[in-house]
């Protein structure tokens, strides 16, 4: 048998096998077809993040109620992939697109493509440089502002704070840092002892907190972490060092773990970003736009500070 022929047979077999696999997956995920009200393509930042999963689930729930068909895709933090996903939505002729952008700049071409194709596009949760048909979400700066103001208030305007950054250079990290700094500038009695990234990661946050305890020990009065994962890491490290009763910890996102910790009186505060509200509103807004009905260019879902006092509203 010739080499070329063998190669040919192999690749045909490989393609055949993957087609089989794909149709199998497609069949298992698709239920009986009912003519949908509208078809909306959704490209999400990253489905291995709990918060995004919550947005996605609330979208699906709302879509089910409204009789809308969703095509949900996961860009896995890759802006280039996200643009491709939106392009394929356009090719499929969806009625509207919901975009949960990976990057401010990198995901902008996706918005531009949708505009060119005349398909309404709704940004959910975070922004792109090019303005979409509508934005549903919150302003990240505000979340940090709420948490920092809580710390300032608890410290009575005087004390030392450390700040744990998210992955450096990402939109959420930049904005949350900015929000926190605004509050710090307005309160000269609060000193920022140190700031360092723990890359959104709980284990890294624990190590960082342990090292901070070594460096600053008693000087630290409060910790602000850009997300709850890191907040929880800092919390555990402080508890193990026996320092938690003297140090305030606040973080952002209100993930289940953090809410549990607040209700147990361990975590002092988290900031609730209304994933359910964002997801549901995004679907509603997209449906309106697809029908040609007008809507607000910015639908603002407010943040809420969660503490022991109001925890019951969130569980």
């Amino acid at each position: 048998m010739s080499i070329r022929f063998q190669v040919g047979v192999k690749s045909v077999a490989a393609v055949g096998l993957s087609l089989l696999l794909l149709t199998g997956l497609a069949c298992s995920s698709k239920e009986e077809a009912k003519p949908a009200e509208a078809v909306i393509g959704v490209s999400l930042l990253n489905l291995s993040s709990e918060f995004i999963v919550m947005i996605s689930e609330s979208m699906e729930q709302r879509a089910g109620e409204l009789g809308v068909e969703l095509i949900i895709t996961d860009a896995q933090r890759n802006a280039e992939k996200q643009v491709q996903q939106v392009e394929s939505f356009i090719a499929q002729g969806v009625d509207a697109i919901i975009l949960n952008p990976c990057e401010v700049e990198g995901s902008s071409p996706a918005v531009a493509r949708a505009h060119e194709a005349g398909i309404p596009i709704v940004n959910v949760n975070s922004e792109t440089r090019i303005e979409p048909s509508a934005f549903v979400g919150s302003h990240d700066e505000e979340s940090a502002r709420l948490a920092m103001e809580f710390i300032v208030q608890r410290l009575g305007g005087n004390g030392n704070v450390v700040m744990m950054h998210g992955y450096m250079g990402q939109a959420a990290q930049i904005k949350r840092a900015q929000g926190a700094r605004e509050v710090l500038e307005a309160n000269p009695g609060i000193r920022l002892l140190s700031e360092q990234t723990a890359e959104w990661d709980r284990a890294k946050a624990m190590a960082l907190m342990e090292n901070w305890i070594q460096s600053y020990g008693d000087q630290i009065n409060a910790v602000f972490a850009h997300n709850d994962e890191m907040g929880m890491g800092a919390l555990i490290a402080l508890e193990q060092a026996g320092l938690k009763d003297r140090i305030i910890v606040a973080s952002v996102d209100a993930i289940a773990d953090a809410l549990g910790a607040v209700s147990e009186g361990r975590l002092d505060a988290t900031v609730f970003q209304d994933s359910v509200g964002q997801g549901r509103t995004a679907v509603e807004t997209a449906l309106k736009l697809s029908r040609g009905e007008g809507c607000e260019p910015e639908v603002y879902i407010p943040f809420q500070l969660v503490t022991l006092e109001n925890i019951d509203q969130f569980r």
Partner: peptide, 13 residues
């Protein structure tokens, strides 16, 4: 050990 240390099993750890 990691799950026990961060008191949660994280799929993206």
């Amino acid at each position: 050990v990691l799950a026990a240390r961060i008191t949660t099993g994280q799929p993206n750890a």
